[in-house]
């Protein structure tokens, strides 16, 4: 570890702590919530501001210790914030599809005439 000024160390430590705490709370929610549709909200904590704070800590540390601006962590922020909604939406639709196909009663029915699988499941 190279020596950096105290203010930078405090800032880096604080940001790392806040970010990892948010990620931890998100994963705790993942373990605690009762249904899948509640659990799908939990990981977004880690991927939004959890990741942003940890990567901001990394940007500050490498910029101060290397004496030059190190901003390639921004890439990860952009990438994570663009891809997470896509994966979560796909997963949610897959879950909805499976729950309807099995006829689990706790999800709203599909729009009429759009999904024939639901009708087939009702007939059983």
């Amino acid at each position: 570890m190279t020596e950096i000024p105290v203010w930078a160390a405090i800032l880096v430590g604080l940001f790392a702590l806040i970010g990892s705490l948010l990620t931890f709370i998100g994963c705790m929610g993942l373990a605690r919530f009762d249904s899948f549709y509640q659990r799908i909200h939990a990981p977004t904590l880690g991927t939004s501001f959890g990741a942003i704070f940890v990567l901001a800590a990394s940007i500050i540390y490498f910029s101060v210790s290397g004496q030059r601006l190190a901003v390639h962590e921004v890439l990860i922020v952009i990438f994570v914030s663009l891809t997470t909604p896509v994966t979560l939406m796909l997963l949610a639709r897959a879950a909805l599809y499976r729950d309807r196909a099995e006829g689990n009663g706790n999800v709203p029915a599909a729009a009429l005439g759009k999904d024939t699988v639901v009708k087939a499941a009702d007939d059983l």
Partner: peptide
């Protein structure tokens, strides 16, 4: 600053 970094990063 090294002590601060060491402990905060470890807790994180």
């Amino acid at each position: 600053s090294e002590t601060i970094l060491f402990w905060t990063i470890m807790v994180s």
